[in-house]
Amino acid sequence: MTAAAGTPFDAVLLLSFGGPDGPDDVRPFLENVTRGRGVPPERLDAVAEHYFHFGGVSPINALNLDIIDRLQAALAAAQIDLPVFFGNRNWHPMVEDTVADLYAAGHRHVLVFPTSAWGGYSGCAQYHEDIARALESLAAATPGLADDPITLRKLPHYWDRPEMTSACADAIADARTRLPAELRDDARLVFTAHSIPVSADVAAGPPELGGHLYSRQVTAASKKAAAAAGFAAHDVVWQSRSGPPQIPWLEPDICDHLEAIAADGAAAAIVCPIGFVSDHLEVVWDLDTEAVETAGEVGIALARAGTVGTDDRYIDMIVTLITDQLEGQTTDAAGLGCTDNGARCAVGCCVSQRPSRPS
């Protein structure tokens, strides 16, 4: 199959969050992330230390480049002739620059793969905003854009794809083998995802369904992965919260939860970062550093499951999502349509408007 065989798509854009490539990038990167949110300088200084702990380099860019290399090879093996470009929201290569490069190279119909599997504002709608912002930048620099437009279509959510479930289940099984043999049978299985303000979670999804789209998806995905891994019970917790303590965020926090289950007598835990597709900084700091330290303090043996981004099934899933678009299948399992050029998500997908962000 080629892109020219009955489809208009001629390129793929992997769109991600971005991260610093060296110590001099850390503070400018954090300022990009928090611009307009009123985050005090001392909070940025504290978060910067997390990056400096790893030499000022976030793993996310290298991990995304690895995904791109493997995706390009998988597309070629499937005889799909689509080049893969790389763009970020908060650091170079910025999505505005990448879309300009796509346009200059002659691409006019682009599929956008986000490195977030979820609905809600941060997981989905903000990627539509990234696309719209990049197109606004391109229009400002390209007077004739209206006569020769470009279309960017974001691919749908993929949290419920079977490839994700099976990859998570195998990662859990592998983590279990890294626990002491005598503790494996009774280990607590704990899923974790990025916390968000409760108000943002309430706003996600249609009000008639009660909102909470993001937390409902994380809960459902965790249930599927736990069952596939052979666990009758599991916990869902959250990590990486930020902002003032008086603003409610999704709880419990992973470290608080480890303390609680230790007090209940748990001796071992498997932590699966189901909310993240790669081992970027919030995984290697919040889990491999802070959660490991907490587990040691409370006497719990801890094994962290790997993320799915290094699994070949994750790459196969991206190819399937692309193939569905090439064949005209434009909805995901929940019946949610894709949108073009930053248009609002389909009804039932994400938030109706950007949630307010406390300073």
Rank of each mutant, 00 (worst) to 15 (best):
D21V: 05
E42M: 13
N32Q: 14
L63A: 11
Q79M: 10
I80V: 15
R70C: 06
A77R: 10
F52L: 15
A77W: 01
F29I: 03
L65H: 13
V26T: 09
F52M: 14
L15F: 05
H50D: 08
L71E: 09
V26L: 07
R70Q: 10
G18F: 00
A46T: 13
V12T: 09
S16F: 11
V57F: 00
V47R: 06
I60G: 00
R35C: 13
D10R: 02
N61I: 12
V84Y: 06
D21A: 14
F54Y: 15
R43Q: 11
E42I: 11
P40M: 11
T7A: 15
G36C: 12
F17I: 07
G38N: 14
E42K: 14
Q79R: 14
F17S: 00
A78T: 04
G56W: 07
V12R: 06
D21Q: 13
P83M: 05
Y51E: 01
S16Y: 10
N32I: 07
I67H: 10
G22W: 01
F17R: 05
L44R: 04
A62R: 12
Y51R: 00
R43N: 08
V26P: 07
P23K: 01
R37K: 15
A62D: 14
A73D: 14
L13A: 09
D10M: 08
G38Y: 10
F52Q: 03
L44A: 04
T7L: 01
E42G: 02
P8T: 13
L14D: 03
F29N: 02
P41V: 13
L30P: 02
P20R: 07
A11M: 09
L44F: 04
T7V: 05
A74M: 11
D25Y: 08
G22F: 00
L14P: 05
L63N: 12
G56L: 09
R35D: 15
